[in-house]
């Protein structure tokens, strides 16, 4: 297998295209991506869920893997982070705008 040629900022860019399955907003704008690190062929993503009860864990993991596979990343590790917990403050300006058009203020 060829090692991935993507660096961390490229991974962030790719993740900006992965939407939260329940909202029209990317995982990055939701502030759910806590950290990305690339070491050789291995890509490690630390993900914070907005709620412990997230009903879409399955879909989120799948969507991340599919998106990164398109970039040639095969060896992807996704780790759930609870500490520090995700909070609304992590949502980006753009994310806030999208949510406000949904009638949700944060």
């Amino acid at each position: 297998m060829l090692p991935t040629t993507l660096n961390e900022s490229q991974i962030w860019e790719a993740l900006k295209e992965v939407e939260d399955p329940e909202m029209p907003i990317s995982l990055v704008d939701m502030g759910m991506v806590f950290d990305v690190s690339v070491e050789g062929a291995n890509t490690k993503i630390q993900l914070g869920l907005t709620a412990t009860a997230c009903p879409a864990i399955d879909f989120i993991f799948y969507d991340i893997r599919e998106r990164l596979k398109k970039e040639g990343c095969e060896d992807i590790e996704i780790e759930l982070v609870w500490d520090p917990p995700w909070t609304k403050e992590r949502i980006s300006e753009e994310g806030r705008f999208i949510l406000s058009t949904w009638g949700l203020s944060v």
């Binding site: 399955p21 329940e22 909202m23 029209p24 879409a56 399955d58 879909f59 058009t101 949904w102 009638g103």
Partner: peptide, 19 residues
């Protein structure tokens, strides 16, 4: 306007069913 949120959430249900 109310259907923006509703339709998006229904898509999640649909995906749940189809997957």
């Amino acid at each position: 306007r109310s259907l923006v949120k509703i339709d998006k959430e229904e898509l999640f249900h649909l995906r749940h069913g189809e997957v």
